[in-house]
Amino acid sequence: MSLNKFEKIFQDKQKKGKKAIMPFLPAGYPDKEKFWEYIREMDQLGADIIEIGVPFSDPVADGPVVEKASNIALKNGVNLKWIIDNLTEYRVFLDCEIVLMGYCNPFFKYGYEKLAKDMKNAGVSGIIIADLPLEESIKIKPIFDAHDISLIYLVGLNTSKERLEKYAKFASGFVYFVSVLGTTGARDKLPEELKEKLKLARDIFDLPISIGFGIKSPSQVKEIEEYIDGIVFGSSVIEHINKGKDIKDFFKAWI
């Protein structure tokens, strides 16, 4: 069987001894034009997978930085249709893979069937739904499978071995490992128990593992390097942009 798009990316990076770089930015942030400029810039700077945030009014898994950015995006008039319409136009200019990340309700209202179809047409390879745990995903996953869209699961420090094993039966694309017991937002230090838990996840999953939530600098991931394949950063990118700094400076440290 041929490798899926994600496995190919992670394998290429691995051969080079590198981790996949996966920035997250809420769609339409800081404004509708700037957003696409940033996406193109991050793509050119070497981002491997870009997670486009689908803003939601009540993002319970997010800390203050992403929540505020999402609210601004909503005020800018962004919705799922805008994201997909624009992607259809901009996708050809991007080398990276695109993943949508958001919460159930906007996806549910759009309709999963239509969403999966439109995502495929727009060249999106995966979807991450922050408030869709395994149990609630079972009915929905085949819809995305049918259109070659990977439904990417989140697991965390408190996900038991038994639950990780259940997830392993369904997981596709890659595994998103949440590195803190908390919401999104850059932390100075990652938890002690992260290493052990990542080791366990490595044993259980056949898929690449990316970590996210709380990451802001390469030094943080030194100790866990051998157990991960990709790194997601959201809040730290947004904070960098908010300070009016050049996005190149942020990427320099990682590439």
């Binding site: 898994a61 408030d131 869709l132 745990p133 149990e135 609630e136 420090l157 038991s160 017991l181 908390g182």
Partner: peptide, 9 residues
């Protein structure tokens, strides 16, 4: 139970 996995335990 539409919650983040971290709330399932």
């Amino acid at each position: 139970q539409f919650v983040p996995e971290l709330l399932m335990p």
